[in-house]
């Protein structure tokens, strides 16, 4: 039983890391109504920039601030050069634009920092810790704590300030938002900056865990099923979904692996997402649109 619990909790903690990636998507989806394909390369760009700055001798706090400033700057540029000219275009046009954006992030990162793999030490050790009789990873625990702080902060910003209302209003109906004096451009920049901040935190944690390399951008593929299960519009939903996916795939790997062969971890999330698409396409907490016809 304790082994089962260990796998369950360990998986859930790892799942928080998926959720961390997925939250960035939710922020942008809510403000711009588009699945931001570039979120993965934003994470890569953030982690690479941070790692190189630290290697060049910058203290971590400075590296963090500089990287964040670059991400906020890119949010401005993205709004100005990509989103504004494409205002009122179809969702698929915007999606393809973010696909292009992801190549720009990747290319700029490569030109600036090269293709070398970097080890990143952000001061979180990875040792087994005994907690309530369960043996857990200290790194996973610290990452979960950081993610929890981040989510609490975002929930405050979105739930407790006018910004949250403005974000939802712009996503729901951009023209109506304009008519009540909400400046769409500013809301967009803020949302993309927040997503950049989340990308930076995710990039540091994922980079510290598995090294800073170009495959980091592929975390998008892990975040996608989490988004489908949690719902594209719900920060809370993707956290629950991340935990479900993390715990589920570890449990399946260990307890079903002997029956149907191993490697379950690689496809488990997608099968779960597929089931959700068939049964509950809006995800756990996503909003369903009611249309009058």
């Amino acid at each position: 039983m304790s082994f089962f619990l260990e796998v369950l909790v360990g998986g859930a903690l790892a799942g928080v890391m998926y959720a961390l990636v997925a939250i960035g998507f939710v922020l942008i989806y809510r403000a711009s109504g588009v699945f931001n394909f570039a979120q993965g390369t934003m994470i890569l760009f953030a982690a690479l920039t941070f790692a190189n700055l630290v290697e060049m001798g910058a203290p971590m706090s400075l590296a963090f601030v500089v990287t964040l400033a670059l991400l906020i700057g890119s949010a401005f540029l993205t709004e100005r050069l990509v989103l504004r000219p494409l205002a009122n275009r179809s969702v698929i046009t915007l999606f393809l634009a973010t696909l292009g954006l992801s190549y720009i992030f990747e290319g700029v990162a490569q030109i600036a920092w090269g293709t070398q793999v970097h080890a990143l030490d952000i001061g979180l050790s990875d040792e087994p810790v005994n907690l309530f009789g369960l043996s857990l990873s200290s790194f996973d625990l610290a990452a979960t704590a950081i993610a929890a702080l981040l989510v609490a902060g975002l929930a405050l910003v979105i739930g407790r300030t006018g910004l949250g209302l403005a974000l939802r209003a712009v996503a729901a109906d951009p023209l109506a938002a304009l008519s009540i004096g909400i400046q769409q451009e500013r809301v967009t920049v803020i949302a993309w900056s927040l997503a950049g901040f989340v990308a930076l935190v995710a990039g540091l944690l994922w980079g510290a865990r598995s090294g800073v390399q170009f495959s980091l951008a592929l975390i998008v593929l892990k975040a996608l099923p989490v988004l489908i299960i949690g719902g594209f519009t719900s920060v809370g939903g993707v956290i629950v979904a991340g935990i479900v996916v993390g715990a589920g795939e570890k449990l399946a790997e260990i307890f079903l692996g002997s029956l149907i062969g191993s490697g379950i971890e690689n496809w488990f999330a997608y099968v779960l997402a597929l089931l959700f698409l068939m049964i509950r396409p809006t995800g756990l907490f996503g909003q369903r649109d009611l249309a009058r016809i």
Binding site: D173, S179, I180
Partner: peptide, 13 residues
């Protein structure tokens, strides 16, 4: 301040 002919409400809210 204006209103819209075909409703400009934030439907999910």
């Amino acid at each position: 301040v204006r209103t819209f002919q075909n409703l400009g409400l934030f439907q999910g809210m």
